[in-house]
Design a protein around this nucleic acid. Structure first.
Length: 201
DNA sequence: TACCGT
DNA sequence: AACGGT
């Protein structure tokens, strides 16, 4: 693997496990088997290293969500799969990372926000409309409003002030909120399918 | 690796 | 004192 990629991979791994501020540039250099000089040849400073590392991960996520959307297996299926992915993906991330990024790495945080605004919310709204057409979601729901609501719900899951990791398990919160949201929009026909999808694995 | 500034 | 940066 190329030096730059190796640094990014190892950095991301350590950031996720231990927190961005806990991991020093010296730690990363040691773990990657390179000198600090090499790191600073590739990256201007630690902030840029953080930015690039998270950007890579977010591009992976974006690709996953695109593929999910393109698979086109129905609105309920889509919501269930997204919830699963978020649970698996973020169960390996130390919850302190979110508040660290928000506080100390604003350009990196902006990346998250842009992704939510430009990509996630539109997709959710589309899927809500699709579910209405399929007859699985109640026809009277407002897709644009509920897309924003849903996005806020997902984001709140990672808010360690609202859900302190000492008292809450991110995965359980994620599932509870998902369940509540979807039950608020299902038709009777949708509820049947939802139970069916949930019991098949 | 040693070192400096914060 | 510890860590980013040279």
């Amino acid at each position: 693997m190329e030096t730059r990629e190796k640094i990014l991979t190892i950095a991301m791994d350590q950031f996720a496990r231990l927190g961005v501020r806990y991991v020093t540039v010296d730690d990363i250099a040691r773990a990657a088997g390179v000198s600090k000089k090499t790191i600073y040849q590739e990256f201007k400073d630690k902030a840029q290293l953080v930015l690039e590392a998270f950007k890579n991960k977010m591009l992976e996520d974006q690709e996953f969500f695109m593929n999910l959307y393109d698979e086109n297996q129905g609105a309920i299926w889509h919501f269930v799969e997204v919830s699963k992915y978020i649970r698996s993906r973020f169960s390996n991330i130390n919850p302190v990372v979110f508040s660290e990024i928000q506080r100390y790495y604003p350009s990196c945080w902006k990346l998250f926000e842009d992704f939510r605004q430009n990509c996630a919310i539109k997709t959710i709204s589309d899927v809500l409309e699709k579910g209405k057409k399929e007859g699985y979601f109640r026809p009277e729901i407002d897709a644009n409003i509920l897309a924003l609501v849903r996005m806020d719900q997902i984001a709140s899951t990672f808010d360690s002030e609202k859900f302190p990791p000492s008292k809450f398990n991110v995965m359980e919160v994620q599932m509870a909120i998902m369940d509540h949201f979807i039950h608020g929009i299902l038709t009777d026909k949708g509820r049947e399918l939802f139970y069916k999808i949930n019991n098949q694995d």
